[in-house]
């Protein structure tokens, strides 16, 4: 299997202070790769670098073979890379429907987006009931659903998900993980999933990397990592 996303020797940081050191990563098409690690390990910075919000100092970011480095942030979605940021990135002042529309506007006009929007509502019926509500009126779970739905309207090849379980009830987290599994199995979606919730993440992931202090300290299949007691104790705390 070829890797849809390949990261080689990525070093990046803020204001000349590197946060990521020499990160290597490969995510095969149609798989979910979890990025695990403690607070401050560099997980969010990794995603921000992949989506162009942080400029890398060194290294390559290859999406299906072409280098993404140096592209403006707004171009990356056109290359098939959707980033759902931590805190979900729902635009509070816009309605649910406007948020969804915005998700697909870069590739189609409003009329052509009716179909994709209908699909999103079928996937998340709760959003349909709330479609005229403003973003700030939604519950935490609904916000996460909206962020996911909006990313799906973009029909991305690779989805970067930052802490989708943050602050959500276990039942909602389970629903979201089940949905990711379904999108991978039925739709061939590729996901890079940053999670603090290690158990949930490993329950859906095919592979995982463990980060500590800006470096990848372990990379393996999800099953192998669950079985590696020493690693779990050292970096994942369970």
């Amino acid at each position: 299997m070829t890797a849809l996303l390949r990261v080689e020797g990525l070093t990046a940081g803020y204001g000349g202070v590197p946060v990521l050191h020499d990160v290597d990563l490969a995510v095969p098409e149609g798989t979910i790769c979890a990025v695990l690690g403690a607070n401050g390990a560099g997980k969010t910075t990794l995603l921000r670098t992949l989506s162009g919000m942080v400029r890398p100092d060194r290294g390559r970011i290859l999406l299906d073979g072409s280098d993404l480095r140096g592209l403006p942030v707004e171009q990356l979605i056109r290359r098939g890379l959707a980033h759902v940021p931590e805190g979900r990135g729902v635009i509070d002042e816009l309605t649910v429907e406007e948020n969804l529309w915005l998700g697909g506007l870069f590739r189609a006009d409003r009329r052509a987006l009716r179909g994709p929007l209908r699909e999103a509502y079928e996937l998340f019926p709760a959003l349909y009931a709330r479609r005229r509500h403003a973003g700030h009126q939604l519950s935490g779970g609904e916000r996460q659903m909206l962020a996911l739905a909006r990313a799906l309207v973009a029909k991305p090849r690779l989805m970067l998900l930052d802490e989708p379980s943050l602050g959500l009830a276990p039942l909602v987290v389970a629903q979201i993980m089940a949905l990711l599994r379904r999108l991978r199995d039925d739709g061939g979606l590729t996901v890079l999933l940053v999670e603090q919730n290690v158990r949930s993440a490993l329950s859906v992931a095919d592979s995982a990397v463990v980060m500590a202090q800006g470096r990848v300290v372990a990379a393996d299949s999800a099953g192998a990592l669950v079985g590696d007691d020493a690693l779990r104790h050292a970096y994942l705390g369970f």
Partner: peptide, 12 residues
């Protein structure tokens, strides 16, 4: 309202 998020969604 949200320049960062908008850029991620492809808005110039």
């Amino acid at each position: 309202f949200a320049p960062q998020v908008s850029r991620l969604l492809g808005v110039n």
